[in-house]
Structures are given as structure tokens and as C-alpha cells.
Write a protein that binds this DNA or RNA. Structure first.
Lengths: 233, 233
DNA sequence: CGAACTGTTGAGAGGCTTCAAGCCTAGTGG
DNA sequence: CCACTAGGCTTGAAGCCTCTCAACAGTTCG
């Protein structure tokens, strides 16, 4: 059963739960399943790289990835983390540009690729689906604009608090309010847009103030309300 | 002829030049012209306000507007400037959210409003048009992501240089390389995401270094290449 | 002409970055 | 199994960039 290492089990490649596809007919979901190519990606592997030409978009059915851009002197700016149920790479695909971000696996993942022609076919033949696509894009655009305002006006302290809240709201926490996503200090810094040392200092400050607890990379929320207040959202 | 103050002349409300509408048929352009409502907006007037519900989107056929968000303690963050040929407010309209920005006129403008149902009708019945819409949204999303990386990683000095280049590339300059768009120092600061005083100091620095010339609000490029180098784009 | 806004300059404070050094942890190979 | 190494983490010190506050000049407009 070596193959199972590289070919995910069918129950792990189910796309019908994706909100993204909620307006597709059964026949269209069928086409999707027929056209998809699914694969397991190990931690650290790169799904696509900035500047490459994409041939399809990806549906994440397991794991966590980071999507980032490479800025000045190679410093990476993390745009977002994605998890099960998320879709990646459709932006560059639809505008027919080269990928403007890199997608790297940080927790072993299963991804299904849908070829570009299939996406185009669905958009063209299902108005509900293309309308939904437009709405998703508009919402992401608003979020990006919000983030621009944030990052331009807030202090590093506020932005770090905001990132913690964002992780809290989008990723699993256990019964102790401990974030299950494991990020390096550097990754946190690249998300906030600051130096690694600053993140470290601020995190220990938050800890001393009794807002969070730290055990290596595990971050536990103690006083979430105060973090939200600092984040100013 | 008082009316001409409030009702723009027909030749100023021509929409067929808009790249945005390039995939529409003549009949569809006709519908657009039939459904549109055009109006003159004086400098300082507000077209729509953050938080308001929109009933249509606007095509700019004359003038300049600034689109901004209100951040922490009322500080405005300018998202972009728009001019003739640009479209505004379609993002919030399509996602059926409340407006997340305010649009304010900074140079006397003429705008045509197209009702939401008309937009929806065109999207639904003309695949080329809705495909084009999707591509525009994707491109704007990339630009927003680029801007996030910039603003998170660059110094105020670099960002100011970048804004100057952006204005240079998107707005008219006369034969002396003088920007025709007239912005206050505060507006520049709100674009860069910094304090007014910082913009003033950096502009005089650029001037002392022989990169630009300043005459009140008129900014003249002397050494554009060096500005680009500082901007790091 | 005065009021209100815009632009300019200086001084001081502080947030954040950078550099440097040392510690800790996990993974590797003998 | 343990020493070793590399990469991640932490802390301190120094300094710079940028912000804030304050005062004042210049400009615009009713």
C-alpha cells in the first residue's frame, strides 16, 4: 500500500462540501470529479511558485498552506493561510497572469487540481456559479482593502494582535483555547510585516500581561477580549 | 442656461469609449444609455459614503475623485484616485455589501450612474462581459496584494516615491513633466499612510536632492529614474 | 480683514529595526 | 544512544526612522 502515500483516499478528495461549488448541479459536480487530479503534498513542498504559469486551480481538502509574495530582498510577505475547504490559485488563473504568489505546505496536505478549461466551462454555462465567483472576488477585494488600511495605520503591536485574532477565528483551537496551527516566529513576523525579534518581544509582553500563554509554538488564549481590544477591529 | 450646471452636456456622458464596456453589443450600449443617470459633481462633494447602501455603480466621464476608507480615529486611508474612464462602486454593489469606502470629488466631475439591475442583466446575458468583469476583479485583487506587500515592507520614503510614480503613470503631466493633479500634502500622506509632516520633509529632501521641483501643490519630475529607483518597483 | 485651512520647520520621544551573542530543540549520523 | 549541528528562539544594546506636539508662515475665501 505504498501508493496511499502519494494518492489520497477517495473520501479525502470530496469536493461537494466546498461552499465554492454550492451552485453547481449534480452533473457539474460529476464533471468536476472526473476532471480533477488529486495529490498528497508533504510539509515543505511547493504547490506553485511565483512567476509560474498555472494550468488549473486547487481545492484544499486537507492540511494547511501559506500563500506568500516575495518582497524586497527576498523577504516573504504572507498574504494568507489556507485550510480545508479553501480554493487557491484561481485569481491568477482567471486573469491569465503568471502566479503572483507562492503556495507552500506547512501541514501535510491533500489538493485537487481542476483544469482551467473546466473552470471556464462551468463559469460560462452556469450563471449562478459565475455570479457566485464574482461575489467571492468582490469580498476578497474588500478584505484586501481593509487590510491595506490596517497595515498602513496600525502599530506592529496592534497588527500582531490582529493576526492572532485572525488565526483564532479561522483555525482550530483545542478545549484550552490553544491554537492548533503551528507557525514559526518568522512566519508570524512575515504575516504582520515586521522583524522576527519584534514578534518575539511583543508575544512575551502579551504573555507577561496575562493575555496569552506560550509553550514553544503553541499559543493559548487567556484573555481573548483584551487581544481583540488591542487589535482594534 | 442654469441647467447646464447640473446636467452635463450629452457629449460628456458618452460611455462607449469605456474599456469596461468593450464587450457589449450596440443594443446593450443603447440600454446602458437609456438607463443611465448623469450628473455634475462639484469639487468637495461626496458621491457615496462609507456604510451607505448603493443602488448602482458610477462611470467617471470627467474630473478626479478620491476613494478612501476611514481608519482608526477618523484618519482617512486613500485607496486610489479615479479619473475619466474609470468605474467606481461596483465592488460593494456586486457583493451586495454596504459601501466600504467613501468617494469624494477633488476635481469637478461628471458621473453616470447605472442601476444595479442593469448591471446584473448585462452580466447574466453576456458571457464575454461577465468574463471581462471577472478578469478586472482578479487584476484589482492582484494590485491590492502587491500594495499590501509594499506597504508592509517598504519605508515611508520608498512608499512616497512609489506614490509619485503611480501618479506620474496614471495622471496627466504637462510638457515640463509637471503633475497636473493637485493634491494637498495631507492627501499624499493619506495615500502613503504616514503623517503630513513626514511627507513635507521627504518632498523637500527629494527637491534638495534634485529629483523633483515643487511649486505649491505642483510637483515636477526632474530625475524620474532616481525616483523609480527609490520606489523600488 | 479675519477665520480657517494648508504648509513648513524644530524639538523630543519612542517604536521598531538591526546587529550580535548565546540558548534551546529537533533531527542526523556515527 | 549520544554527540553534534543547524535552525529556531531569545535577549540586550544602539541607533534610526517616523510620529507627535507646537509654533508660525502662507493662502484662500467668505
Amino acid at each position: 500500500m505504498r501508493a496511499s502515500l502519494y494518492n489520497p483516499r477517495p473520501e479525502e478528495t470530496n469536493l461537494s462540501d466546498f461552499k465554492f461549488f454550492k451552485h453547481l448541479t449534480d452533473a457539474e459536480i460529476g464533471k468536476l470529479n472526473y476532471d480533477k487530479t488529486c495529490q498528497i503534498y508533504k510539509k515543505g513542498s511547493i504547490v506553485y511558485r511565483e512567476g509560474s504559469r498555472l494550468t488549473g486551480f486547487y481545492c484544499v481538502t486537507r492540511g494547511i498552506l501559506k500563500i506568500y509574495k516575495t518582497g524586497i530582498d527576498g523577504k516573504e510577505q504572507i498574504i494568507r493561510f489556507v485550510k480545508k475547504g479553501d480554493i487557491i490559485a484561481f485569481r491568477s488563473l482567471l486573469s491569465q497572469e503568471l502566479a503572483c504568489t507562492t503556495a507552500k505546505v506547512i501541514d501535510d496536505a491533500v489538493l485537487c487540481q481542476i483544469p482551467y478549461p473546466t473552470l471556464l466551462f462551468l463559469l460560462q454555462n452556469n450563471w449562478k456559479f459565475s455570479h457566485w465567483m464574482i461575489q467571492i472576488l468582490c469580498r476578497e477585494l474588500r478584505e484586501a482593502n481593509d487590510y491595506i488600511t490596517d497595515i498602513a495605520q496600525k502599530s506592529v503591536r496592534e497588527r500582531l494582535a490582529e493576526v492572532l485574532i485572525l488565526l483564532r477565528d479561522n483555525f482550530d483551537v483545542d478545549e484550552n483555547d490553544t491554537l492548533q496551527i503551528s507557525l514559526t516566529r518568522e512566519e508570524l513576523a512575515n504575516m504582520v510585516g515586521t522583524a522576527t525579534e519584534s514578534v518575539i518581544r511583543l508575544l512575551s509582553e502579551f504573555k507577561q500581561d496575562g493575555l496569552i500563554d506560550l509553550k514553544g509554538r503553541r499559543i493559548t488564549f487567556i484573555d481573548e477580549a483584551s487581544i481583540r481590544k488591542i487589535a482594534n477591529v
